[in-house]
């Protein structure tokens, strides 16, 4: 097993771990963290694929990962705003019930 293969398998493992947790965890912020973990796995997998062979790494997957980082930051931002709104509505409901 080469170093790059180790990175690829580690990336695949982290991706599966993150996706499974995204689907199973109930707490909204922890679910968002799990999604971020999954995206870290995808990045590791893509960057290891880009660095195969000798010479310069393939710039296309690296560009995809860069795009992915920015999109993930935007998704994290709007998801936190939405989670905050959901939890606030839940709190308001509780107060009404009391």
């Amino acid at each position: 097993m080469t170093t790059l293969q180790l990175f690829m398998y580690a990336g695949a493992f982290i991706l599966v771990l993150g996706v499974a947790a995204t689907l199973l965890v109930r707490d909204l912020i922890r679910r968002l963290i799990a999604l971020n973990v999954a995206s870290g796995g995808v990045m590791l997998l893509l960057l290891a694929l880009a660095d195969r062979g000798d010479g310069e790494p393939d710039p296309v997957p690296q560009a995809l990962v860069l795009t992915g980082i920015v999109v993930m930051a935007a998704v994290t931002g709007i998801a936190i705003v939405l989670a905050r709104r959901v939890e606030q509505l839940d709190d308001d409901l509780e107060e009404v019930e009391q």
Binding site: T3, L4, F7, I29, L32, I33, N36, G40, M43, L47, A48, A50, D51, E56, P57, Q62, V65, L66, I69, V70, M72, A73, T76, G77, I80, A83, R84
Partner: peptide, 28 residues
């Protein structure tokens, strides 16, 4: 990222993944 020869990603990750996304999560 340094090991897979991706300095662009390392800079973006440091500023965005660790920086802005970290600030968002810690702020929450």
């Amino acid at each position: 990222w340094a090991r897979v020869a991706a300095p662009d990603v390392a800079i973006a990750e440091a500023a965005l993944g660790g920086g802005v996304a970290g600030a968002l999560l810690v702020d929450a």
